[in-house]
Every structure is written in structure tokens, then in C-alpha cells.
């Protein structure tokens, strides 16, 4: 078996096991209602984590994700409530701004040879600061479009609701899986993560690919901001604090190697769901502090890093 599949398989098994355990204690968790809430509550994290997956696969990191989500929610609120744009127009502007922001970071990383860690750290401060300058206070969004979206859903058998934002996340994952595994752009991302020198010698357009990766990550963070805005009907500069770290955790728990080159978008989906599962369990339990989510995620993260070390240490050889 392809060894990069092993961490993915481990994640899937752990998720299944944890879900069964949770259902054993709280049979109510086995319902489409819970699944529907899973998807809705974690939509923004899932979308952001998809962008993060591409960045990490290419051997980089994007710390600006949470700040870009926060900035986007404020920008959308400002455009709708103060400027008077239709939400769809506001979304388009926000996505374009986010993509441009990411492209500039990607260009800085490539042309100035600055580590992505540093560039996106600067990006994080810029986006968060920019959001506070736009409006330091939370701006509530009242618009018919928002009301309509929140009332639209597909009723699943068993009474669960598949909301619009849940569907957006699923669509993003489906497209991202195609992009990663069935396009030249996807191959180029893996190539960069494997060895940038080799990739360049093999004709991968390194500059273009790097810029596109960070533009895509920021655009997806922007989309996560749109979803967050629909989810909370508000824009606030301190929204989604630290989400970049949750996204990184989801990516790594999903079996992607933090040093790049190995991993799957589908794994990230399971990583996000696993985090959602822990939160839901805590809600069902009722006695646990929500901080237990962090502890469990920390333990899982550590486990997976150790697992990957073991799997990727001096691989087997055939002749």
C-alpha cells in the first residue's frame, strides 16, 4: 500500500472508533441532525483548511487564514450595511480582495525568498489590523438575502438539515479533491512539496504555482469569511481568532505531512470532522469544559506527528 495512505487510514479509523464510542454513550449522536450540525458548524473551518492543505502540501504554511476570515466578515458587513451593496456583490468584492492579498503574499515568498512563515505572519497582522481599522465594533447584518439563505436547507431523512453553508463546504472539498489529484496544478503543488529544486529542473513553473497556491488559500479563507458571515449574520474584526491553528491541526490530523509533499484533501475533511465530533460530544455530555476540545486536539496532533515520523522514516525499498 502507498505509505502516504497510512496516516489517512489511521485518521479514518480513529474517527469511526471515536464516533462509535460517542454514540455508545449518547445514542442521540447517531442522527442526521447531528451530522447536519457538524457540517454547518464547521463549514468555515473546513473551507479554510482546504486552502491550508494546498499550502502545506507545497511545503509552506499560511498563518494569515484566521485574520483573513475576520477581515472578510468586517468588509462584507461594511459593504452591505454602510455602502449598501447587495450581499452577492459584497461577496465577490471580498473574494477578489482576499485572492489578491494571497497573491501578493505568494509573490513575496517566491521573489523575496522569505519563508512563508514570516510573510504570512505579517499578512496576519495586516489583515487583523485592517479589519479593526474598518470597524473596531461588531456590525450586525440585516438583509433579506441573509434571512433567505438561513431558511434554505435540504431536509435529510431523519430530520437533519443540510444547510447552504454546509453544501458550500462539501462542494469546496469535492472540487479541491479534483484539483489536487486530477490537474496539472495539483501535481505541481505536490512537486513543490517534494523538492523545489527538482520541480524547477523538471519544468514546474515555480513562481506561478507558488503565487497561485497562496492566492487560492486566501481566496478560500475569504470564502470561509463569507460562510462565517452567513453563519453569524455579523462582521467583527476579532472573528475567527486562531482559526489558522485549528486549520493546521485539521490538515495534520488528516494525514498531510507538515513538511509537504504527502497528503490528501479528503484527509483534511476527516480532520475537521474529528474536531467537530469532539465539540459535539462535549455539548452532549454537558459537564465538560469546552476547553477539552483543545486538549483532545492537542493529543491527536501529537499522536499523528509521531505516527508520520514512524511511517516516513527510511521508507521500504523494492528493486
Amino acid at each position: 500500500m502507498n505509505r502516504s495512505l497510512r496516516p489517512l487510514l489511521a485518521t479514518a479509523l480513529i474517527f469511526l472508533f471515536a464516533y462509535l464510542m460517542a454514540v455508545g454513550q449518547h445514542p442521540g449522536m447517531l442522527s442526521t441532525r447531528v451530522v447536519g450540525n457538524f457540517l454547518t458548524d464547521n463549514a468555515f473551518l473546513g473551507i479554510a483548511a482546504v486552502g491550508m492543505t494546498f499550502v502545506i502540501l507545497s511545503g509552506g504554511i499560511d498563518l494569515s487564514v484566521g485574520a483573513v476570515i475576520g477581515f472578510t466578515t468586517v468588509l462584507i458587513a461594511v459593504l452591505i450595511m454602510w455602502v449598501g451593496l447587495h450581499p452577492l456583490a459584497a461577496f465577490a468584492v471580498a473574494l477578489a480582495v482576499a485572492a489578491l492579498f494571497g497573491a501578493v503574499m505568494g509573490a513575496a515568498i517566491h521573489y523575496l525568498r522569505v519563508p512563508s512563515f514570516i510573510v504570512t505572519l505579517a499578512g496576519m497582522f495586516l489583515a487583523r489590523g485592517g479589519a479593526s481599522v474598518l470597524s473596531p465594533d461588531s456590525i450586525g447584518i440585516e438583509h433579506d438575502f441573509y434571512t433567505a439563505v438561513s431558511r434554505s436547507y435540504i431536509l435529510m431523512p431523519g430530520g437533519g438539515r443540510l444547510t447552504v453553508i454546509g453544501m458550500i463546504m462539501l462542494a469546496v472539498f469535492a472540487l479541491a479533491i479534483l484539483l489536487a489529484h486530477r490537474t496539472r496544478f495539483g501535481s505541481n503543488i505536490y512537486a513543490l512539496g517534494g523538492s523545489e529544486t527538482s520541480a524547477a529542473l523538471m519544468g514546474v513553473p515555480v513562481a506561478r504555482t507558488t503565487i497561485a497556491i497562496y492566492a487560492l488559500s486566501s481566496a478560500l479563507a475569504g470564502l470561509a469569511g463569507v460562510v462565517f458571515s452567513l453563519y453569524t449574520s455579523a462582521g467583527y474584526s476579532l472573528n475567527a481568532l486562531g482559526v489558522e491553528l485549528d486549520a493546521i491541526a485539521a490538515v495534520v490530523i488528516g494525514g498531510t505531512l507538515l513538511t509537504g509533499g504527502y497528503g490528501f484533501v479528503a484527509g483534511t475533511f476527516i480532520g475537521v470532522m474529528l474536531q467537530g465530533l469532539v465539540q459535539t460530544y462535549i455539548v452532549f455530555d454537558g459537564t465538560l469544559s469546552s476547553w477539552w476540545t483543545k486538549i483532545v486536539v492537542g493529543v491527536l496532533l501529537f499522536m499523528f506527528i509521531v505516527l508520520q515520523r514512524l511511517v516516513f522514516r527510511a521508507g521500504p525499498r523494492r528493486t
Binding site: 495539483g186 501535481s187 512537486a191 512539496g193 517534494g194 523538471m202 514546474v204 504527502y262
Partner: peptide
């Protein structure tokens, strides 16, 4: 060897000139 250790042999041979069908790589 200046190839990609993390990709399949086939992909290493065809990276950059993969045949595509309907825009998707013909694996």
C-alpha cells in the same frame, strides 16, 4: 536523482506534460 521522491514513477516521467481529458489529467 533530481526527481520527486514523493510522487509515483509514472508522474515523475510525465510531470509537466501529462495527457489531459476534459481538463483533467488522464491518470
Amino acid at each position: 536523482v533530481n526527481l520527486l521522491p514523493n510522487r509515483s514513477v509514472a508522474e515523475n516521467l510525465f510531470l509537466g506534460r501529462q495527457p489531459t481529458r476534459f481538463g483533467l489529467v488522464d491518470r
